[in-house]
Design a protein around this nucleic acid. Structure first.
Length: 572
RNA sequence: GCACCUGUAGCUCAAUUGGACAGAGCUUCUGACUUCGGAUCAGAAGGUUGCAGGUUCGAGUCCUGCCAGGUGCGCCA
């Protein structure tokens, strides 16, 4: 149980006790961390909200609680301040005790609300036969962080990479392959060659009607199971997956399932028939549509007038299939903002079909270049591979300069962790929904609020601990109690205590940046601690207490960064 | 035309979902002991939160109207 939960529970009971007649259900009684440490460690803002309900002054309401109810054990002082805020100041000894407990707790105070619950995560989902570019990194990195957060909270997470492997692009693709492919190029860089072939065939189709018709024919043949086209299609998938796996390997991303859209082909007709039978869908201009006026949404086409199914049909079939097979509590999609309407329509249709699973669309802002949006056709895309290479190269230049004593292999390894970490953190530290303008400078920043700042803090702690063992061989810091005497130590302890809440909050809101914020704040307080008080030169007892605090910060940073998919080398 | 999103310091972004005087980083300026890693720390400067109203104890956050940008909207996924 986290401190917030404990205090919130107490707070509710306290209000209940003092105002038994009031209907408290409509007021938020939660206790939250204070915005500013001058107002204590935690605060409750409920008294202001209750003022109208009780027809009393907020400060009087708060004061009555302070006077009328015994404080919880952990609280030193409970004060009424400002307009009617209730400020909690925790006891130093209790804090120290709690922190001792965190050291023994492998989970660092993170609770397990997800035990026995299943969530399906649908993220990354690149298109077959196209290279991954910077537009794919957000879905992959944000989705993976949300995935990891839920796993730690005890959820059974099924991460599914829902490849785009069944679009109309395959007709054009097959035509291109037959006419333009260069076997040599296909061997050395398969995806780039496939992309080139696609582009050429696409251009041809734009100016050549016969070409386009032939492409359509090839698509129909493929969908009808033509062995030759099927073989080509499988080849595209195989080559693409090899390429994707390289990227996923570098990013530390793993999926439990890799089911492309084609996996659901066999179910499409049945699902659509169900919509017809239940009169959810109707015919209009030859197509089959679902009208969504009640939901105030534009209608959705679920089957084209030529009888073909589109992505709405696929997504519906996917939901039904997932529900049937895994019975999840929720399905979470991580895609860019352009798909908001689409998912709202799909979710609305699901509800009409009686699907009760919780459906969440976690959308993020489109990534664009300073000169505008990028697109495959304009050819101004930045390949993900190149971005990762560049990040590692820049990190390597710095590592060589600052850690010349390391072996070249070690430098490379550190540069990898730092470079990839920097890229991920640049994305995860901001609100997913904000639109981001890509610049090399920002994506690869290595100072200030960045992954290397956190990794640096971690590496310094590792160094402190090595030096401690060196200078005081055989000594166990845990034999000494944790003492919180300096203000900065108390500040640090409060941060440690908040880790569990921070993780829970980030997961519940699907907002990894809450956790990134927390970690950055923790590292800042630690850096200040590191700079202002001596560890190894402090007197016995104080020294051990501080070394123990260092260890706890290290543990928290390691766990927290791991949740963001960022590594923590012992030396950087 | 309709719908959704965004607008916060010179730049890039936060803001515990309605809470206390709006916070960081970058940039600029000042300082850090022959001490545990200076990829650091302490400090300064920088704001009418796009504009105008409204709701209430309290608004960057909610409502209305404008302005600017982005995205989507019957046969691509």
């Amino acid at each position: 149980m986290t401190v917030v939960n404990e205090l919130s529970t107490w707070m509710s009971a306290a209000f209940q006790q003092v105002y038994p007649a009031a209907d408290l259900s409509q007021v938020k009684l939660d206790v939250v961390p204070t915005a500013d440490e001058q107002f204590g460690d935690y605060q409750c803002n409920a008294a202001m909200g209750l003022a109208r309900l009780l027809k009393m002054k907020p400060r009087d309401i708060a004061q009555a609680v302070v006077d009328g109810v015994a404080k919880p054990d952990c609280v030193e002082r409970l004060e009424v301040a400002g307009a009617g805020f209730l400020n909690f100041y925790l006891k130093a000894e209790w804090l120290a005790q709690y922190v001792e407990g965190l050291q023994k707790d492998e989970r660092m105070g993170v609770s397990s609300p997800g035990v026995g619950r299943t969530v399906i995560m649908d993220y990354s989902s690149p298109n077959i036969a196209k290279p991954m570019h910077i537009g794919h990194i957000r879905s992959t990195v944000i989705g993976n962080a949300i995935d990891r957060l839920h796993r730690l909270l005890g959820y059974r997470v099924i991460a599914d990479n829902h490849f785009g492997d069944w679009g109309t692009q395959f007709g054009i693709m097959i035509m291109g392959y037959r006419n333009f492919v260069n076997a040599e190029a296909l061997k050395t860089s398969p995806i780039e060659e496939l992309e080139r072939v696609y582009r050429e065939s696409y251009e041809q189709s734009q100016k050549d009607e016969a070409w386009l018709n032939q492409a359509r024919t090839e698509l129909v043949k493929l969908q009808a199971g033509d062995p030759e086209n099927l073989a080509l299609w499988n080849k595209f998938i195989e080559l693409s997956k090899l390429e994707f796996d390289k990227i996923y390997g570098r990013l530390g991303v793993r999926f439990d399932l890799e089911r492309g859209e084609s996996f659901y082909n066999g179910r499409l007709a049945g699902v659509i028939q169900g919509l017809i039978d239940r009169t959810i869908a109707e015919e209009s201009e030859g197509a089959l549509v679902v009208r969504l006026e009640e939901e105030k949404l534009p209608l959705s086409i679920v089957r084209k007038s030529d009888g073909g199914f589109n992505y709405a049909a696929t997504d519906l079939a996917t939901v039904l299939s997932r529900v049937e097979e895994f019975n999840p509590e929720s399905i979470v999609y991580v895609t860019d903002e352009r798909q908001q309407l689409h998912f709202r329509q799909v979710f609305a249709i699901c509800r009409r079909m009686g699907v009760t699973v919780r459906l969440e669309h976690v959308w993020f802002g489109l990534m664009r270049l300073p000169e505008g949006t990028f697109s495959t056709r304009q050819g101004n895309v930045i390949k993900l591979e190149r971005l990762l290479d560049e990040a590692e190269a820049r990190a390597l230049a710095i590592v060589k300069e600052t850690s010349p004593e390391m072996s070249p292999e070690q430098q490379k390894e550190v540069a990898r962790a730092v470079g990839i970490g920097a890229i991920k953190y640049a994305d995860l530290s901001q609100n997913p929904q904000s639109m981001i303008t890509f610049t090399w400078e920002k994506a690869l920043a290595l100072d200030g609020n960045s992954a290397p700042y956190l990794q640096y803090a971690y590496a310094r702690i590792a160094s402190v601990q090595d030096k401690y063992r060196e200078r005081f061989p055989g000594k166990d810091p845990s034999a000494y109690p944790i003492r919180l005497t300096e203000p900065v130590e108390r500040k640090l302890a409060i941060r440690l205590v908040r880790f569990g809440d921070s993780v829970a909050q980030a997961a519940a809101a699907y907002r990894p940046n809450y956790l990134a914020d927390y970690l950055y704040d923790l590292a800042q307080v630690y850096s200040s601690f590191y700079q202002t008080v001596p560890f190894l030169k402090a007197e016995e007892g104080v020294r051990e207490s501080r070394v123990r605090l260092c260890a706890l910060v290290a543990k928290t940073l390691r766990m927290g960064l791991n949740l963001l998919g960022i590594e923590t080398p012992e030396r950087i």
